[in-house]
Simulated assay, not measured.
Amino acid sequence: MTEAELYTVYKGVYMPASIHPPQSLKYFEEFSFRSDDIIIATYPKSGTTWMQEIVPLIMSGGDPASVETLPNWQRVPWLEVGQSQLNLEQRPSPRMLATHCQYNVMSPSFFTAKPKVIYVMRNPKDVFTSSFHHHRMASFLVNPGPQTEFLHKFLDGKVQFGSWFDHVKSWLNAEDKERIMYISYEEMIMDLKDSVARIAQFLDKSLDAEVTEKIAERCLFKNMKQNKMSNYSTVPRELMDQTKSEFLRKGTSGDWKNQLTAPEAEHFDAVYKDKMKDVKYKFVWD
Rank of each mutant, 00 (worst) to 15 (best):
F28Q: 06
V13W: 08
L6R: 03
P236E: 08
M188V: 13
V196I: 12
M59C: 15
M240E: 07
P108M: 08
N123H: 13
V13C: 09
R95I: 02
Q74I: 13
Y7I: 04
T129V: 14
L260S: 05
R122T: 07
I180S: 02
I189H: 15
K205V: 14
Q74T: 15
T261S: 15
E178Q: 15
Y272Q: 13
N227Y: 11
M229T: 12
G12A: 01
L151P: 02
D278H: 11
S66G: 02
F31N: 06
W50G: 05
Y10G: 01
N258K: 14
G162N: 03
F110K: 08
S130W: 04
H100W: 11
Y43S: 02
N231K: 09
S245I: 02
F128C: 06
H135I: 02
D286A: 07
W73C: 00
F110T: 06
A262W: 00
E178A: 12
L88I: 01
S230W: 01
P44A: 06
N104H: 15
C219L: 07
W50C: 01
V55H: 07
I39H: 04
H100D: 06
S84E: 13
A265S: 14
D255L: 02
P21Y: 08
F33N: 00
P144W: 00
K228D: 09
A200G: 05
F128M: 05
W171Q: 10
V284G: 00
E5L: 06
Y14K: 12
I180R: 02
K116L: 10
M51S: 10
D37Y: 06
E30T: 15
V196L: 06
I19F: 09
L25Y: 05
K280D: 15
E186N: 06
Y232A: 14
Q147E: 07
Y119T: 10
D255F: 06
K169C: 11
L6A: 01
K257D: 00
E178P: 01
R218V: 10
M121E: 02
P146F: 10
K169Y: 11
W50A: 07
T148P: 04
N227T: 11
T69P: 07
N227R: 10
Y281R: 12
A41Y: 10
A65M: 06
P115L: 05
V13S: 12
M229G: 06
Y182I: 15
K228E: 13
A262H: 00
Y27G: 05
K228W: 04
G12R: 00
V120R: 03
T112Y: 05
C219N: 11
R198V: 08
F33A: 00
G254V: 08
I54A: 04
E3Q: 07
I199H: 09
K282N: 10
Y272D: 04
R122G: 06
M1I: 12
V9L: 13
L6E: 04
D176L: 00
P56T: 07
R237K: 15
I19S: 10
N104E: 15
T252Q: 14
Y272W: 13
D241M: 03
E266M: 00
S60H: 11
D269F: 03
R34G: 12
N143E: 14
T252A: 14
H152I: 09
K158Q: 14
C219S: 11
V159H: 08
F140D: 10
D204T: 09
G251Q: 04
T112W: 03
D274S: 10
M240Q: 10
Y232V: 12
A270N: 00
T261K: 01
P77H: 02
E210V: 14
